[in-house]
Design a binder for these strands. Structure first.
Ligand SMILES: [Mn+2]
Ligand SMILES: [Mn+2]
Ligand SMILES: [Zn+2]
Ligand SMILES: [Zn+2]
Lengths: 150, 150
DNA sequence: CTTGTAGGTGCAAATGATTGCAAGTAGGAT
DNA sequence: ATCCTACTTGCAATCATTTGCACCTACAAG
């Protein structure tokens, strides 16, 4: 079975309708690899399905995120990017608020924090593809020189 | 010295120019207490300074955040809210992605995480007014019923 | 297969936020 | 006090995203 058909089935089994638009968007995200903006996904998917509307891409990617099939990454440039969820490679992101450098970290680092929030506040932390803001190693020296607020 | 004048001085000492617009916006945020949207700040500030443009409010609040004088809170409704930074009351927020319920938590919970990120990844986590997404106690039962993706 | 309907799509308007540019000004230098 | 200029503002255009609504369709029940 092709990658696209497998993903479409997975979506149907989760109780969502599979429309031509959804199938194309899902397959597009799957084949692009990595994180991509809605416009990028739209431009690519439109080639397979002329007439596709960008609002549908927004709505579909949001739906796929709620369904747990894509992950969201908010960049510092106020553009939301998406990627196919890969259960084999769970990871979170650190983004430098000064230079936009991005690095991946292991989710295991957050187990203890998640436990504490659950016990002390009854809060279940979203543990899928979190993104944290801060300063990367390189930009911390700029902060020390007073150019940046720490 | 009035609250507004004190804040304006603080801003000037940080190396920023103090314009009538900036002084009014800063004083407005200070007197509104709590977190407010840019539109709310603009509507209030405009009364003190007719002709003020909303783009200036966006730029000024962003600048005040970089200067460390206001804090940002991103709501689930894609509206960015701001509050005056209060060094006497540091706190982070937990926001329920289902019902928008918001609670404050103590920053001390993140000390260990911040240490680990620094040691293992050389990354300096922003430790000012972080916001975390998840499910509140109440909405976790809905998730258990299958209505929500955990 | 046909049909009914809950749910999805295209379109266009609205909303939140950013940006390029010409004109204005804060604040240090003289 | 006056001048200079780098920084700031108003304005309008633009961008990213959301939303209301009329029309359309996936899919399961018969
Ligand atoms: Mn990722
Ligand atoms: Mn707060
Ligand atoms: Zn950096
Ligand atoms: Zn909740």
């Amino acid at each position: 079975m092709s990658c696209g058909a497998r993903l479409a089935n997975e979506l149907r089994q989760k109780g969502y309708r599979v429309t031509p638009q959804r199938a194309v968007i899902l397959e597009t995200v799957a084949h692009m690899h990595g994180h991509h903006s809605v416009q990028e996904v739209f431009t690519k998917a439109e080639q397979s399905l002329p007439g596709l509307n960008v609002a549908t891409v927004y709505r579909t990617l949001d739906m796929l995120h709620r369904a747990g099939m894509v992950e969201i990454l908010s960049t510092t440039a106020n553009i939301t990017c998406f990627s196919l969820r890969d259960p084999e490679h769970p990871h979170y992101h650190l983004i430098c608020r000064n230079c936009d450098a991005m690095q991946e970290i292991e989710p295991v680092l957050f187990n203890e924090l998640a436990d504490t929030l659950k016990k002390k506040h009854g809060f279940s932390l979203d543990h899928r593809h979190l993104t944290f803001s801060g300063l990367c190693k390189h930009c911390q020296s700029d902060a020390a020189k007073g150019n940046l607020t720490p």
